[in-house]
């Protein structure tokens, strides 16, 4: 599965991996806003920002081509709308949409590939995102592949009993979903029991927020200034 790749990349030890999650989140937002709000000189801006991301990926020792392929997940949607835009007589706009959404996805890949998800969620928590939501997201990610595997087993079992894969009859599929629901519900209760058994008192203990060091500040300043300056320069002179 694709996720394993991202998770493996995120356990790297480069200087970019070691930067504080908050610094990377802010830099990502600056990058995305600089790209999203641009209306002039898009090709030049896109080229410059693309090189910036490539430099970051190389610095983090992440395979650039594989990361680019990973970001390509965003393309089908973008391509559909680019085509729609083209049919509707606005080809240039369609191309811009595709480029902007692809670069944005690549930027997200760069951050997620250099920051383990728990660290990212912890960073968001110190940035005032509701803790309740983040804890739900943490559990969701923890059990995502466990439940998915159960779902796949069930689909396989149904296929083995005659329903050709992917074409279960409607009722059978609904029954399978209901069973998967019940199992997930049971698992949640078991998890809750396991938490209580180890003294859970209504608050998940969190790791202390990592220290935001001087190198994080330097990184934050340069990583946010770079896309902003590129953007300003192109707006002025292009």
């Amino acid at each position: 599965m694709h996720h394993i790749v991202l998770e493996r990349w995120s356990r790297g030890r480069s200087a970019l991996h070691r930067r504080d999650a908050r610094a990377k989140i802010v830099a990502l937002l600056v990058f995305l806003v600089a790209l999203a709000t641009a209306e002039r000189a898009i090709p030049q801006l896109a080229a410059a920002l693309f090189l910036l991301l490539c430099a970051a990926l190389v610095w983090a020792r992440i395979p650039v081509l594989a990361a680019m392929a990973r970001a390509g997940v965003a393309l089908p949607f973008a391509a559909t709308f680019a085509a729609v835009s083209w049919i509707s007589g606005d080809a240039a706009r369609g191309a811009i949409l595709a480029v902007k959404s692809y670069l944005s996805a690549l930027a997200v890949v760069t951050v997620v590939a250099t920051t383990p998800l728990p660290a990212l969620l912890r960073g968001l928590e110190t940035m005032r995102v509701p803790r309740f939501l983040l804890t739900v997201a943490q559990f969701l990610y923890r059990y995502l592949f466990v439940v998915s595997e159960e779902g796949q087993h069930m689909a396989k079992a149904a296929a083995a009993r005659g329903a050709s894969a992917g074409r279960l009859r409607f009722r059978v599929a609904a029954g399978a979903l209901a069973v998967l629901f019940a199992r997930s519900y049971g698992r949640a209760q078991e998890i809750h029991g396991a938490m209580l058994a180890r003294g859970y008192n209504g608050r998940l203990p969190t790791a202390a927020a990592p220290r935001f060091g001087a190198s994080d500040a330097v990184f934050l300043a340069s990583a946010s200034l770079a896309p902003a300056l590129v953007r300003i320069a192109l707006d002025r002179f292009a």
Binding site: P118, Q138, F139, Y141, V146, A194, M195, A197
Partner: peptide, 15 residues
């Protein structure tokens, strides 16, 4: 200390 049958349910933290 209770060790559950399915470790997957018992190991709920990210690391």
């Amino acid at each position: 200390g209770l060790v559950f049958q399915d470790s997957e349910s018992q190991l709920f933290m990210p690391t």
